Simulated assay, not measured.
Amino acid sequence: MAAVESALFEHATSPSPYVTEAARHLLSAGGKRFRPLLVLLAAEAGPHADASEVLTAACVVEITHVGSLYHDDVMDEAALRRGADSANSRWDNHVAILTGDWLFAKSSELTAQLGPDAVRIQAETFTRLVEGQILEGVVPEGDPLQHYLAVVAGKTGSLIATSARYGARFGGASREVEGALTAYGEIVGSAFQLSDDILDIASDSEESGKTPGTDLREGVPTLPVLMAQASTDPADARLLELLAGDLTDDARHAEALALLRVHPALAQARAYVVDQAQRAKALLEVLPAGSVRQALEDFADVVALRTA
């Protein structure tokens, strides 16, 4: 991961100091580096975990992810990202959008080094990622929960699935293992976002570093909220009334948050995410027992049970 971190900043370098500063802005703000870590872990399933292509692939997925954050912040009109000024706040929307585009271009350059099949995989992944972002703002035609899960699979699951796929492929794993780890990454990736949903309701701000109920205040649909809204219990009438209204008011927001924290939907959401982690772990049966499989199993558990 130290090698990945160094390489990320090398790749986010332009002949223009201005572009370099903008491109490195969110990289410097930190992050979990969840995607490149999964590339490196998945590569351990093959005989060539130290191949240079593995490092390149790790940079591809993280630069793609960071590029998407620049666009996300413009769409969300966010003032902060990872505790730092967002690029749109530090500069303006035009600079933020174009910097995101520059990072996408840089990830494409790196992907080209991995060969034409990797270019195809990256293009397919990016199609799903952007489609998920588009659908996030569309009113569901059918079941709101199923629509939301499809959005999460596209926006988050797709790139994390590709992270595992790249790691397995460039680490030299068999196609059977690559397929299993791709499916594992898709499930774990979606679970990563869904566990964020639970943290938004249940977290203590000191423990998680997040402000509880941020998505709730902004009216962003999340797993516990959607599960609560599916309730037909008359006892939930007040909660449903609050969720259907404006939660920017502090008193209404605090009341809705308190009701959600004791609602069965929160436990239901936790159980769903834990079940997803179990599904992901079952896919690892193609790997021999040992440290690699154990690390990937632990990785799925951490995603499902994380508190930050």
Rank of each mutant, 00 (worst) to 15 (best):
residue 1 M to G: 12
residue 5 E to K: 10
residue 6 S to P: 00
residue 7 A to Y: 13
residue 10 E to F: 07
residue 13 T to K: 13
residue 14 S to L: 07
residue 15 P to A: 10
residue 20 T to L: 13
residue 20 T to F: 12
residue 22 A to I: 10
residue 22 A to L: 13
residue 26 L to V: 07
residue 29 A to S: 15
residue 30 G to M: 08
residue 30 G to C: 07
residue 32 K to D: 01
residue 37 L to N: 11
residue 41 L to Y: 06
residue 42 A to R: 06
residue 42 A to P: 01
residue 46 G to F: 01
residue 51 A to F: 01
residue 52 S to W: 03
residue 54 V to M: 01
residue 54 V to G: 04
residue 55 L to S: 02
residue 57 A to Q: 03
residue 60 V to G: 05
residue 60 V to H: 03
residue 65 H to N: 03
residue 67 G to H: 03
residue 70 Y to C: 07
residue 72 D to E: 02
residue 73 D to R: 07
residue 73 D to F: 03
residue 77 E to Y: 09
residue 80 L to A: 11
residue 85 D to L: 08
residue 85 D to R: 05
residue 93 N to D: 13
residue 94 H to F: 10
residue 96 A to H: 02
residue 96 A to I: 05
residue 100 G to Y: 03
residue 102 W to I: 06
residue 103 L to R: 07
residue 104 F to N: 02
residue 109 E to R: 11
residue 110 L to N: 07
residue 112 A to T: 15
residue 114 L to P: 09
residue 117 D to A: 14
residue 119 V to Q: 11
residue 125 T to C: 15
residue 126 F to R: 01
residue 126 F to P: 04
residue 129 L to V: 13
residue 129 L to G: 04
residue 133 Q to I: 05
residue 137 G to E: 12
residue 137 G to D: 10
residue 139 V to H: 12
residue 140 P to W: 00
residue 140 P to G: 06
residue 141 E to G: 12
residue 142 G to T: 10
residue 148 Y to C: 05
residue 157 G to W: 00
residue 165 R to Q: 11
residue 167 G to H: 02
residue 175 R to A: 15
residue 176 E to K: 13
residue 176 E to A: 15
residue 178 E to Q: 14
residue 182 T to P: 05
residue 182 T to V: 04
residue 184 Y to W: 09
residue 194 L to M: 14
residue 194 L to I: 06
residue 197 D to R: 05
residue 197 D to Q: 09
residue 197 D to I: 07
residue 200 D to M: 10
residue 200 D to Y: 09
residue 204 D to G: 12
residue 204 D to K: 12
residue 212 P to K: 08
residue 217 R to P: 02
residue 219 G to S: 12
residue 221 P to H: 03
residue 223 L to R: 00
residue 226 L to A: 03
residue 227 M to R: 14
residue 231 S to L: 00
residue 231 S to Y: 05
residue 236 D to H: 08
residue 244 A to N: 06
residue 244 A to V: 07
residue 245 G to Q: 08
residue 245 G to D: 04
residue 248 T to Y: 02
residue 251 A to C: 07
residue 256 A to Y: 00
residue 257 L to P: 01
residue 259 L to N: 05
residue 260 L to C: 10
residue 261 R to H: 11
residue 261 R to P: 06
residue 261 R to V: 10
residue 265 A to D: 04
residue 266 L to G: 09
residue 267 A to Q: 15
residue 272 Y to W: 15
residue 273 V to I: 12
residue 273 V to F: 09
residue 275 D to R: 15
residue 279 R to G: 11
residue 283 L to Y: 04
residue 286 V to Y: 04
residue 288 P to H: 14
residue 291 S to L: 09
residue 294 Q to K: 15
residue 294 Q to M: 13
residue 300 A to C: 06
residue 300 A to D: 02
residue 300 A to N: 02
residue 301 D to I: 04
residue 302 V to M: 13
residue 304 A to S: 08
residue 308 A to L: 00
